[in-house]
């Protein structure tokens, strides 16, 4: 099993920032439109992290025109160009699925400073 583990680890990106649950992040993904390439930004709160070597992924949630939107980003995929942590929040759970039931003021997280 160690060999498979090493095989997966060799494919992991080394330059990822430390991402925690509750972080507000900005993710840049590469989008190919025919021959053209451009970058698309997605900004939201990390509500879940799935760990597993090169299978690491985060679920990012945001409100877009009063509609909740969630996207799962495989962290080590080449299509995920850059991840920026904007702010941190104080959270007490590993999965913030309860945010799905809340909207507006109730869906705020307490910001961590320092």
């Amino acid at each position: 099993m160690n060999i498979v583990d090493a095989f997966e680890k060799a494919q992991m990106k080394q330059d990822l920032p430390e991402i925690r649950i509750g972080d507000r992040v900005r993710v840049a993904t590469r989008i190919v439109e025919g021959a053209r390439q451009r970058s698309q930004l997605f900004e939201g709160v990390v509500i879940a992290r799935h760990r597993g070597n090169n299978r690491d992924s985060i679920t990012v949630r945001k409100q877009s025109y009063a509609v909740g939107v969630e996207r799962v980003f495989p962290l080590h995929a080449p299509s995920v160009e850059k991840i920026e942590v904007i702010s941190r929040a104080k959270v007490r759970k590993a999965k913030l699925y309860y945010l799905r039931q809340r909207r507006g003021k109730a869906a705020r997280l307490k910001e961590l400073r320092g």
Binding site: M1, I3, V4, F7, Q11, P74, A77
Partner: peptide, 22 residues
């Protein structure tokens, strides 16, 4: 056969793979 995993190809797609020590 050592087990299964996945890798990303040039296009960025996820490919399921079996790792074999040959």
């Amino acid at each position: 056969k050592l087990g299964m995993s996945q890798i990303f190809n040039e296009a960025g797609d996820i490919i399921p793979v079996t790792i074999v020590e040959v």
